[in-house]
Nucleic acid binder design. Structure first.
Lengths: 337, 337
DNA sequence: GTCGAATGAGAAAAGGTTTTACCTGATTGA
DNA sequence: TCAATCAGGTAAAACCTTTTCTCATTCGAC
């Protein structure tokens, strides 16, 4: 029920209405300085009644803090960035911090424009993100006068970096399959050039032992289907489980298995990676898959950038956040309590 | 190659270095006022050498314009918002305008917090968006002291609103099917409670005439499969084409047809809606589908909010932007030149 | 040689808030 | 009674840029 004010009310108006000076009003509202409890309360009450909201520009000009952070990403599709953004926003909104989102594809010039714009606007920090953990943005953020946190993307070695723990997620998935009694687990994944792919494959091998089989391909359903053809057409014992590098591959695998007359999960268990709702839930049967907890990653990134902006020192280095297995129906088994 | 400055250079530093007053420096840099060409050039050169960038906060405080807009959405998944955002950003970035993105789900309290935060930060305008054209945000934006543009969402009748032209997109799709010689086109779509659904269905009926059949359901692949069962199990002539309300339904339809032994596109043509790359391209065969040109919608929204913020008057009302048929392989036929 | 106009440049105000330094009474301690 | 402390509050500076006056100089015209 705020009055619709033609021009915003300033602290001056509040001070006048409360019968004090501007300085006193400011101190009353910010719980600083010394004054009678009565005075403080009166000013606060008047301010609330008038719907006073301090001008963030003026405040920023003075404090050199804009209560604003930038989120820079080259993930135009938003698959990874949006959950991250949701987390960042959630961590910051009650501190009154807003988020500039800039998607820069892989255009260095555009990236520079956006970064400069953010610097002009005095963002308190920048969160650099992307579409793969070992990806880099097309712009150098290392000598900026403001803190930078890398979340789900790579930066310099001495940067503060947050990534999901691919190895742990991978272990979780494979152990789940093994725990269900699966003995021949194959791993169908993306291009070996991806760090995540190598890390997940390594963790997979560590669990299954020497007889693991890793098939590298691309991130598509088509590759998932093709991999099934390869696995099931060759000589030797066939697999009874497939651990996939992402949900799209997993969907391709599940479809191909069904078309071969193999039942999922009765004959073969399948696990995906990413928990991309739209794919995982639409697969028949819905996919058991590894969630990278991107929202949590975002919250953490928000927390860190705020700490850095507030002058706290944060140990540089890579922080790995755990993944979580989301159990649906493509493996059989029941979600652990 | 900017110098890494401990404290930013202010216009004062430029003025001093150039041997002029602050006022002259400002005027030189902004191409206002009168002075020798020589002076103007010298100031500009010095500013460039020093890497001077005016403090946006100070500028905003004075001009009451922050060169910042807010994009508010309840589309947490980002399916519609991200392309829109890309368009907005593209339209605004070379004007030096940055975008605050806030996703508010359906939480009125959270929405209010975000709107207030944006008002405090003096955004020059707000673009309200969502996940359906007839959806509304959980917050009232009608009496704000700044302009609001509704893009892919509904606002008051006297608002400036941008939506995609569902009827035209629908006509485009159905005519394409008819033009390919299809005679019995069915329409499988989402819940009738959606305005887009009704509008698309109406346009569909207008093209196919009295014998059109519309099946309402939800937006899922499962519903697409079920609809095929219904269409092909009943008595009477079967369809030779299906126009779907979105790409997920279309994918379900295509899968179900294949599983029935019907060939797409040889026996049945299928058209989707949304051009959701991840679904449309992964379908076998890839979907011919209607693209709502959300990026273009975003560009337009950016243009409009800027015009409004600049004081221009913009005719209120609903502006419909055309959709575009994207031809892939689920219909046969070749993309028109 | 003087007046008016045009030209180039600077001083100062404005924008809204926070913070520092200061001021006035009143109270306390000696 | 005097000095010292303290409570309660205020004026003014600072943040950085833009813009409006104002001033001084020069030039052309009479």
């Amino acid at each position: 029920m705020t009055v619709l004010n033609p021009s915003r009310i300033r602290i001056y108006d509040v001070a006048t209405a409360a019968g004090v000076s501007i300085a006193t009003a400011s101190k009353a509202l910010n719980d600083t300085g010394r004054m009678t409890g009565e005075t403080r309360e009166r000013v606060k009450r008047v301010a609330a009644e008038m719907g006073f909201r301090p001008n963030a520009m003026a405040r920023a000009l003075l404090s050199q803090r804009s209560f604003t952070v930038g989120l820079l990403t080259n993930d135009t599709y938003g698959r990874f960035t949006l959950p991250l953004m949701a987390g960042v926003s959630e961590a910051l909104v009650d501190q009154g911090v807003s988020v500039f989102l800039c998607t820069v594809e892989d255009d260095p010039a555009l990236a520079k424009v956006h970064v400069d714009a953010m610097l002009d606007k005095q963002v308190d920090g920048i969160i650099a993100s992307g579409k793969r953990i070992d990806g880099r943005l097309p712009v150098d953020l290392s000598n900026l006068p403001i803190p930078v946190v890398y979340a789900f993307s790579s930066g310099p070695d001495d940067a503060v970096t947050l990534v999901s723990d691919d190895a742990q997620g991978s272990r979780e998935a494979v152990r789940w399959l093994v725990g269900l009694g699966r003995r021949r687990v194959a791993h169908v994944t993306g291009p070996e050039s991806f760090a995540s792919v190598r890390e997940r494959a390594e963790a997979y091998r560590a669990v299954v032992g020497g007889d693991g089989e890793v098939l590298y391909g691309d991130w598509s359903e088509a590759w998932g289907r093709e991999a099934v053809d390869r696995l099931w057409s060759g000589p030797g014992a066939v697999s009874d489980a497939v651990f996939c590098g992402n949900d799209q591959i997993a969907r391709g695998v599940v479809d191909a298995l069904r078309e071969r007359g193999l039942r999922v999960p009765d004959d073969v268990s399948v696990v995906g990676f990413d928990n991309w709702e739209i794919v995982a839930a639409a697969t028949r049967p819905p996919l058991t898959t590894v969630d990278m907890n991107l929202k949590q990653l975002g919250r953490e990134a928000g927390r860190l950038i705020l700490a850095l902006a507030g002058g706290q020192i944060v140990e540089p280095g890579i922080r790995k956040l755990p993944c979580q297995l989301v159990v649906r129906q493509s493996c059989g088994g029941i979600a652990p309590r």
